[in-house]
Amino acid sequence: MTESMATTAEDTVLSPPAIAAGTSVVTARCSAYGIEVAVDTSDDLFGYLPSPLIPPSTMRESRTRQRIGFAFTQTRCADGPPLFTVAEEGVQVLSSSDAELAARVLESQIHLKVAALTDQAVFVHAGVVGLDGRALVIPGPSRSGKSTLVDALVSAGATYYSDEYAVIDVDGRIHAFPRELRLRDGLARDRRVSLGGEPTEPLEAAWVFNLRYQAGAVWEPKELTPGQTLLTLLANSVAVRRRSEVTVRTLRLATAPAQGWYSLRADAAETAKQILQLINRTPGATQARSQGHAGEDRP
């Protein structure tokens, strides 16, 4: 199991020089997964920043290998609403009249940058919950319904690990990435659900669900081969092009004990029930293999 529970993400407010005359500027810093993130912003926007900038990590911290700078600023227009701008290394990412919305984009960009640049773990876009001490992983990009499904599984008794990334260490264990759960119905900013900020123990993956939302879809789970299960995670891996060999090796370890499933799905609450029923009916990949009926003979 894990060596130690080390919370490494830590915000520090410094007293930086001002960006513009008359504006008080602060810099929030956070370091995790070997990446240091700095966000230059103003006093009045500081409260919009996610805290911490990067969710706490349960992995052992190592030296910071890379630094990345963001800016979150406000421009006042005489004849219109103020504009809130997010920039990464001086390049504008987004400009919006909505501060919370811009802050959300900033948070996503920070997390994506950490996921893309870190050498300490493999980041897979996925929702993750814990069930009986094992991880259930639901890979999928943004807007694929991960958060809603994670929320439904948590409501059904599962433990929240992440609704954004499965963080996989070199031994193939799944670590939590516990940001506040965001749901897309209406606007997520009003539906933040805090589900405990404490890092949780890394888990072995037991189930990988490759699900596609389709209104009115019939739940018809088909078991995936180990190779298909690995490809399901690889297709959602953030840095696979940069670290292809490490990623494939890590995903092999992560999926070795897991059972993969594919299905169309409809309503999240109903899908959560169906997933739990399926899990209760099947022995899990490790047990199935030890009984000698998994792998090549699957359809």
């Binding site: 081969t225 891996s237 840095a239 696979v240 292809s244």
Partner: peptide
């Protein structure tokens, strides 16, 4: 012979970070 012996290849595109982030 088992039909499982039929030649099968499953393929996925390895995404860029931006592709992995969004399905839009």
């Amino acid at each position: 012979a088992s039909v499982a012996m039929l030649p099968v290849i499953a393929t996925v595109l390895a995404p860029t970070p931006a592709m992995a982030a969004s399905m839009i």
